[in-house]
């Protein structure tokens, strides 16, 4: 029920939000698309001017790093989102039970959510470093070797980064799914128990359908977030070794922060935005978000 007495009130109330988002989200997004059609390099201003689709031609056909970083982005997002969802769901189910120490356990297992990407890097650099890390103390008691250096070894750097990001990422799913689990009506479970349904059957027929929309939405938000998030990789691996762990946004950030080639950086940005929007729409369509089953 909405009561509209003064037709102007809602506009006044929402104006600050609209102005802020138009000025600092919509307008910049538009200007990215504009810059992507320009030659615009702060260090080479004499070349600035309209470029047409030149930036995109270079990007598609002459820049192997674009394709490589896009490919790595996909791999990174899929691995992270799937693992975070599985661990997060399991964790949410566990801390949704009633047991002694539940409140403390929740606070502790959720806590890495509040930690920044840079801090995560700091902590895991300590853990991975051959002289200060976990593996050195394992070697002290005779397990493994002293020169285990997960971040320096090209064959383990991906797994090392994945684990560090999992540490911080799992609580996101656990919190969101726990919030949704708490809205399942207890009567449904009771009715199912009366009918003799096992725990697994109750999970499949009551819990999962109830969580469906929350899972779709949280995986999508997380996929977008993991795709865009650069803090951890930027500081943990710097995209290396040999660009092996460079995501597309990391490539953009490196272009923006280091090389000041804004025109080409904007073209990369536009390409990434298109990929992301296309993926999001397809995901929501294919997963039938909001459809009642």
């Amino acid at each position: 029920m909405r009561v509209a007495r003064s037709p102007r009130t809602p506009y006044v109330l929402i104006a600050p939000a609209v102005v802020a988002m138009l000025g600092f989200l919509v307008y910049p997004m538009g200007s990215v698309i504009y810059y992507s059609l320009q030659h615009y390099d702060v260090t080479q201003p004499w070349d600035n001017g309209f470029a047409g689709l030149e930036n995109f031609r270079v990007l598609l056909f002459e820049d192997p790093l674009f394709w490589q970083s896009l490919g790595f982005s996909v791999k990174w997002v899929v691995v992270e989102v799937v693992l975070q969802l599985l661990f997060g769901l399991a964790l949410a189910l566990i801390v949704n039970e009633t047991f002694i120490g539940r409140a403390v356990s929740r606070a502790l297992v959720f806590s890495p959510w509040a930690v920044s990407g840079v801090l995560t890097t700091g902590i895991w650099i300590l853990l991975y470093n051959p002289s200060t890390g976990f593996f050195r103390y394992l070697a002290d008691i005779g397990i493994g070797s002293y020169d285990t250096a997960p971040l320096a070894d090209p064959s383990t750097v991906f797994a090392a980064a994945v684990v560090a990001e999992l540490w911080r990422g799992v609580p996101f799913f656990a919190i969101l799914l726990l919030a949704d689990l708490q809205t399942v009506s207890g009567e449904l479970y009771e009715a199912a128990s009366v009918d003799g349904a096992s725990r697994i059957r109750r999970f499949i027929h009551i819990t999962l359908p109830h969580l469906k929309d929350a899972i779709i939405l949280s995986t999508l938000l997380r996929a977008v977030w993991e795709f865009n998030n650069v803090d951890l990789l930027y500081t943990l691996t710097g995209g290396g070794p040999a660009h092996q762990t460079t995501t597309l946004p990391l490539y953009v950030a490196a272009k923006a922060v280091q090389s000041h080639d804004f025109g080409y950086g904007s073209a990369l940005t536009t390409a990434a935005f298109l990929v992301l929007t296309f993926f999001s729409i397809a995901y929501l369509r294919l997963s039938k978000f909001g459809a009642r089953s």
Partner: peptide, 16 residues
């Protein structure tokens, strides 16, 4: 706007 990435707003926001 949920799909607009922070990293990609670096350049235009810097300009603004």
């Amino acid at each position: 706007t949920q799909f607009i990435p922070g990293a990609m707003m670096l350049i235009p926001l810097f300009e603004i």
